Amino acid sequence: MRPEQMLPAEKRALENLLQIAQGDTGQSRRVADFLLAWWNAGQCGSYDLTTGWAVDEAIAEDMCVVFRLATRANSYPDTLGYGPQFEAVVREWRPELVKE
């Protein structure tokens, strides 16, 4: 999938989640875990669906939209132009994976 093929709702949901993941709250950690499972589940960890029990309904809805996007895109988020944003989430929440 090319970035321009993203639906407006998908783009909005993904960008909302990326912004939340840059925070330092419990919900930020849960969102980061969700996003990083798409980025690289092998290195960043998988996502336990029960984690969604602790996020606000609006965040959960954005997560559902992004899950559908990941399935529809059949590719990783960097192919959609979000590599730098996901790398920032890795630096924030998985600093041990950052290679200097």
Score class of each variant (00 low, 15 high):
residue 1 M to N: 07
residue 1 M to T: 04
residue 2 R to N: 13
residue 3 P to K: 10
residue 3 P to C: 11
residue 4 E to Y: 14
residue 4 E to V: 10
residue 5 Q to E: 15
residue 5 Q to A: 14
residue 6 M to W: 09
residue 7 L to Y: 15
residue 8 P to Y: 06
residue 8 P to E: 05
residue 9 A to I: 14
residue 10 E to K: 00
residue 10 E to G: 08
residue 11 K to V: 06
residue 11 K to E: 15
residue 12 R to T: 15
residue 13 A to H: 04
residue 14 L to W: 06
residue 17 L to A: 04
residue 17 L to R: 07
residue 18 L to G: 07
residue 19 Q to P: 00
residue 21 A to V: 04
residue 22 Q to D: 09
residue 22 Q to F: 03
residue 23 G to W: 02
residue 23 G to H: 05
residue 24 D to M: 04
residue 24 D to P: 01
residue 24 D to S: 14
residue 24 D to W: 09
residue 25 T to Q: 11
residue 25 T to W: 01
residue 28 S to K: 03
residue 30 R to A: 10
residue 31 V to P: 01
residue 34 F to R: 07
residue 35 L to V: 09
residue 36 L to P: 03
residue 37 A to T: 11
residue 38 W to N: 06
residue 38 W to F: 12
residue 38 W to Q: 04
residue 41 A to F: 10
residue 41 A to W: 12
residue 42 G to L: 01
residue 42 G to M: 00
residue 45 G to R: 10
residue 45 G to W: 11
residue 45 G to S: 12
residue 46 S to W: 13
residue 49 L to V: 10
residue 50 T to N: 14
residue 53 W to V: 05
residue 53 W to D: 14
residue 54 A to G: 05
residue 54 A to K: 08
residue 56 D to N: 13
residue 56 D to R: 13
residue 58 A to W: 14
residue 60 A to N: 02
residue 61 E to V: 09
residue 61 E to A: 10
residue 62 D to I: 04
residue 64 C to Q: 09
residue 66 V to A: 04
residue 67 F to H: 15
residue 67 F to N: 15
residue 71 T to C: 14
residue 71 T to I: 13
residue 72 R to E: 11
residue 72 R to C: 08
residue 73 A to P: 08
residue 74 N to Y: 06
residue 74 N to S: 14
residue 76 Y to D: 05
residue 76 Y to F: 13
residue 77 P to E: 00
residue 77 P to T: 01
residue 78 D to M: 00
residue 79 T to A: 07
residue 80 L to W: 12
residue 82 Y to T: 02
residue 82 Y to W: 00
residue 84 P to F: 01
residue 84 P to N: 02
residue 84 P to I: 00
residue 84 P to W: 02
residue 87 E to Q: 08
residue 87 E to W: 07
residue 88 A to L: 07
residue 89 V to C: 05
residue 89 V to S: 01
residue 89 V to I: 09
residue 90 V to F: 08
residue 91 R to M: 06
residue 92 E to R: 15
residue 94 R to Y: 07
residue 96 E to R: 11
residue 97 L to I: 11
residue 98 V to A: 06
residue 98 V to T: 09
residue 99 K to F: 10
